[in-house]
Amino acid sequence: MQNITVEVNNLKKSYDKVEAVKGVSFSVSKGELFGLIGPDGAGKTSIFRILTTLMFPSEGSARLLGLDVVNDFKEIRNNIGYMPQRFSLYQDLSVEENLTFFATIFGTTIRENYNLIKDIYVQIEPFKNRLAGKLSGGMKQKLALSCALIHSPNILILDEPTTGVDAVSRKEFWEMLIRLKEKGITILVSTPYMDEANMCDRVALIQNGEIMSIDTPDKIIGNFGSKLWAVKSRNIYQLIKDLRSLDFIETVFPFGEYLHVTSKTGSIDIEKLQSILIEKNHTDIHIQEIRANIEDCFMALMK
């Protein structure tokens, strides 16, 4: 494949008895926005810490821009920007001092790469004299991203950048990532939030140190094996119990206001189900066939 920027081959990482990463392989092309989607403990941070040369793999290999994470770590560090999950800027330096610090470490200046961070930095520039520790969550996140970008890296690696951030800041953050991607920066981002998969070009769904599926979000959804129905009624808790008691129902999962339901036979007669539920005293019944989302796919792959 052309333009492979990140290549990970059978990567493994163990801590004492715990095997956190169990042979993971994937590649990311130049300018791609690649998501590692999975819950806490899936191995996302371990993979990112190996890619950022902060930790050795137990087995397997990884190359970024053709450079090996073990042998060429110094060169890799000059070419990547990393935003760890925990806010790791200097809380007792101001916004501007933090940014200057990171620019200086990489032998550059804010002015030299201002263009790259401008979109993001203008939003916090009015507070440039404020201590980083005194910023709100959304502003800290913007500063951390600015610091990760100030040396104009080829690859940006972001570990759960949107965890604990409100919906507005989250949306703005993804919009920033898409603009950075358009500038040709390759972006690897991890998140436990399944709905964020749709913002990525391709995603790897990861669980217990193993990748269950890698593809575009659309194709992952296209591969969902069965038909799916959304069902709701006034009493959702009773509805869960009643649906599970029906012999033709395969799975019943709460999904917001609805339950997502699959059938053992692959089909559901909506009118028949409706009358069964009416008989069981349900009211305000809605049943409709729906398209699966990434979370449905993730759960189907977990089984």
Binding site: G38, P39, D40, A42, T163, G164, P192, M194, Q207, Y237, I240, F253, P254, F255, E295, F298, M299, M302
Partner: peptide
């Protein structure tokens, strides 16, 4: 926050 989607649903139940 942060749990796998099946555990999450067990939790909502």
């Amino acid at each position: 926050g942060g749990v796998d989607p099946i555990t999450r649903r067990d939790f909502w139940e």
